[in-house]
Amino acid sequence: MSMLIIQSLINGILMGGIYALYSAGFSLIFGVMGVVNIAHGDLLMLGAFITFWMFIGLGLDPFLTLPFSVAGLFVLGYLMQRLAINRVVGAPPIMSYILTFGMHLMISNLALVAWTADPRAVTTAYSGANLAFLGLTLPWIKLITFLISLGVIGLLYWLLNHSQTGRAIQATAQDREMARLTGIKVDRIYALTFGLGAAITGLAGSMVVAFQDVEPGMGLPYTIIAFCVVVLGGMGYIPGALIGGLILGIVGSVSTMLFTSGWSIAITFFLLYLMLLFRPAGITGKGIVE
């Protein structure tokens, strides 16, 4: 029994890594410009489809397509912010909900028209292969995905704290007017941040398609998970996304083990409710509370 719990913990941690990655993008966007991006999961879906089509069309290994989905989603995110979302930054939150909800509907329905509602999967020669030791199994694809996720979150954290641009992003997040006074081009920083958030989300999508089937309507559930993750870890606090992602992954997996998979979804949302009630700034207490 104890081995089983350890195995389900491992499954949960591996899933938690991918949750953390795309939630970091969600958290970054919220932290810097106060926008709750309801179209977030759709960006993940687009990343997944970039990888799917490059795998099908060019026979490219899913992991080799990562730079393309990162670049593609960065450009898309940058333009989305510049052309639309910039107009609602600083406006009441309801404005950004409406705008990004509209974007969610547009992106997912256009994708539905273009690619139909068929679920699609990428099967490679190493799909399902795993690393086995001490009676435990670690699927290679999920392990690599987990490590890349950790690396990218670490890189993002480092970038925000140690690079010129990162510090400009942080300054803009803390006080937009003061940042402007010090000569930071705030609009450019916003677009850059959104592009960055979209890029890592696209990256997550590209890795998801390697082990799960994808379809145009998959986005919204991912947005909801991202929301749970950042509430758990603290809105706008990047390391919080990692903590929240891991907690959610572990809770989902272990409660599936101990109870049933139906219960695991209920327990996840109960946890979200408790957090909002008792610790709205997240477990770390470092999240933004409005």
């Binding site: 089983l4 195995q7 389900s8 499954n11 949960g12 899933m15 699927p139 799960q212 089937d213 559930p221 989902g252 997996s253 272990v254 599936t256 083990m257 049933t260 998979s261 139906g262 979804i265």
Partner: peptide, 17 residues
Amino acid sequence: YELFPIKLKDYNTMLLK
């Protein structure tokens, strides 16, 4: 014996049982 939600996407832990 277990029934699981159709929305469940990751079956690893469910099948582990």
